[in-house]
Design a binder for these strands. Structure first.
Length: 237
DNA sequence: AAGTGTGTCAACCGCATAAAG
DNA sequence: CCTTTATGCGGTTGACACACT
């Protein structure tokens, strides 16, 4: 990539240093947000969406670069057991890591650690299959703002209710929403009810059937259920 | 040294939701 | 309400670097 995308107005592909600089200059002055205005203000030939992604996944000083630690690996594996492929939620509990980083790391490193995959994705096969061999961690990358890996990002992104948009029947939707409340610690959540009723992880549109997961596997039966925030769960993982 | 295969990860795509008008 | 715009998410792709032959 890195070349013009045929239709000229907006570039695609890897960002150049100059583009990074333009975007950073703009964000330093105006702050992040209103992404669609950035191309107009800066002359950047990128979609606002692309600017947002570049900032969130790479330029933001909150983004930690470099290898994932054992602790991070362990945390991600546990959270993935609990949450499935809800990368933004998982990333929210791994300081300094973005959903994209977590997703990539999972697909390339952690999946095989669980012993679930022993195959690789053929170039011709668009499906996410995963590879086998152990391989070593790779390099640290240059960070245009902060090479020292500083900045802990302890964000907890709002949890979307997209799960309710699935073809699940009403009862299942109810369960899912209740579980959502439990996970996110929403005000007036039905988490306790859900927790009582479901010692076993319910089938979710987001989780394949083989990911049904007993909460007890992560020691949640020992959790004191006064508050249902993910923060609490996280501490027990 | 050159050609080929493979792994990694940045970035794109499509879709959904939220917010604004 | 309805429509449009902005933002966010997860899945997927493809460029690039490196390993292997």
């Amino acid at each position: 990539m890195g070349a013009e995308a045929g239709e000229s107005l907006h570039r695609k592909g890897l960002w150049t240093e100059e583009e990074d600089r333009l975007l950073l200059d703009h964000i330093r002055v105006h702050g992040p947000g209103r992404w669609n205005r950035i191309p107009k203000f800066t002359g950047l030939r990128r979609h606002g969406k692309s600017c947002r992604l570049r900032w969130l996944n790479y330029l933001s000083p909150a983004v930690k670069r470099g290898k994932f630690s054992e602790e991070e690996d362990d945390l991600i594996v546990r959270l993935h057991k609990l949450l499935g492929n809800r990368w933004s939620l998982i990333a929210g509990r791994v300081p300094g890591r973005t959903d994209n980083q977590v997703k990539n790391h999972w697909n390339t490193h952690l999946f095989k650690k669980l012993g679930t995959g022993n195959f690789k994705r053929p170039r011709s096969d668009p499906k996410p299959e995963y590879r086998a061999q152990e391989e070593q961690e790779t390099t640290d990358h240059h960070h245009p703002i902060n090479d020292s890996n500083a900045g802990n990002c302890d964000r907890l992104p709002p949890c979307r209710s997209t799960m309710s948009n699935t073809s699940a029947d009403d009862a299942e939707v109810g369960d899912v929403l209740m579980r959502e409340n439990f996970l996110t610690g929403s005000e007036g959540s039905d988490g306790e009810e859900w927790m009582r009723d479901h010692r076993v992880w319910l089938g979710s549109p987001m989780l394949s059937s083989d990911r049904y997961f007993e909460l007890s596997n992560v020691g949640l039966e020992d959790l004191v259920i006064d508050s249902y925030s993910l923060d609490q769960m996280w501490r027990h993982l």
